[in-house]
Write a protein that binds this DNA or RNA. Sequence first.
DNA 1: GCAAAAGTGTTGAGCATACACCCATGT
DNA 2: ACATGGGTGTATGCTCAACACTTTTGC
Lengths: 253, 253
Amino acid sequence: MLTKKGLKEFCADARENYLPHISIDCVVFGFHEGIMKVLVLKVQNEDEWYLPGGFMLKNEPIEKAANRILKERTTLDKIFLQQFHVFGDPERSKEHFDMYKDMLPAKENWFANRFLTIGYYALVDFFETSPNPDQFAESCQWRGLDDLPDFKLDHALILKTALDTLRLQLNYQPIGYNLMPKEFTMPELQKLYEAILDKKLDRRNFQRRMLGFGILTRSDEPRKGGAHKAPYLYSFDLENYEAALREGFKGGW
Amino acid sequence: MLTKKGLKEFCADARENYLPHISIDCVVFGFHEGIMKVLVLKVQNEDEWYLPGGFMLKNEPIEKAANRILKERTTLDKIFLQQFHVFGDPERSKEHFDMYKDMLPAKENWFANRFLTIGYYALVDFFETSPNPDQFAESCQWRGLDDLPDFKLDHALILKTALDTLRLQLNYQPIGYNLMPKEFTMPELQKLYEAILDKKLDRRNFQRRMLGFGILTRSDEPRKGGAHKAPYLYSFDLENYEAALREGFKGGW
DNA sequence: GCAAAAGTGTTGAGCATACACCCATGT
DNA sequence: ACATGGGTGTATGCTCAACACTTTTGC
């Protein structure tokens, strides 16, 4: 939560630069140790949790705004981003309104407005990401899907909707290029799918199916060093991958 | 196009009642004589075409606004509506801006604003719909997908995106309850699918597949009067239909 | 040599496709 | 009777799920 002075400064700045009534909230998915993780923000000195979000510059394309916001939170550029829904319940930002309503008169108070928020989800490489808190937050951190905090506002709904969309997407689009390192083994990729879908898949059928999509390249060198039989390393064939992204494929899990 | 007086009145009213920077545009699909039709508006005395759209009251949920707008255009209530995308290119409403920029100073000119538009598509019963023009339009009429006008703004993109979404939806959701009359024959339903997908389907396989979804009820009375063998009449089993809407089914066309 | 991880193969069920055939009705 | 639209049946092939077998590696 901001101090009165901080709020006043923020509002003056926001009114000048941002489109009113509109925000962007992002669900940033990463994959680490077999668990799907989401970037969450914790407010200073409070047990309050949010998804990373922000506002749109007056003359900025939506997707650019989402990219800019995420770059600030993750240091990542060129993130895979997908708009998935607009949340516009008139009461959805009431908590924010109540929190700040006594500090500034409504006319200059940015948070006295109703906000529609455009939901984006992002898929990022966990290891390339350096979470950065924003001016409202004390920390920005990864949380597993099995260990989510209680979100403020409608951010739990936003997260759930993003996850549902992602699961649906899995049925007709390749996923993984943005979530995996450059090279990976088939079992590692399978763990990603299992984490997203929250269910076990058959090792052998997964392999056949995945290879059938024709979006993977097997490198000559298997991964060494581990115990047991050395698995092959794969990477995505970007050309085919992107063709599949555009055209989609059939069938589901 | 509005007169200066009309514009001034509209803008004063809009500024008081509507959320700035945000509009809603709707792609209304109907089905008639084997062709998918879309509701389009024609501007008075100009060869300019738009999709039906409008603005959101300051305290109105998005979906309510879309419903209200469509009720005005179609006289229909309780329309099947699906939000599908937000279009937010900063230049997208430039045509509107240019058209009205000399009539009113930017400060009072509603159309001097940048607008994000939330795209909804609607599925309606062609025969229940009575198209009504709005204050900007001279006519509101159905046009077949094969006979679309050149749209202004980005409305061609909005329509295409809606159609793509609808086709995707066909893969995992039942469609038809909102587009067909209460009772219909299997060949009639097939024509709907063919019109949406723009390709021929096998009569017999379509029937088996459709019945396999378990969302149809066959009535005892076949349709009489026509030449040839009397086809059975079907209606949707609303309970199963809605369950299928929620849970989706697998496989595509 | 054994356990565990990973690669490859096989089989059977179910579903989609492409047909063939039968029934009803108006001309 | 026959053309046409419509309902039902069947053979083929493909895909997916389930499961068996083999290979590699560290202990």
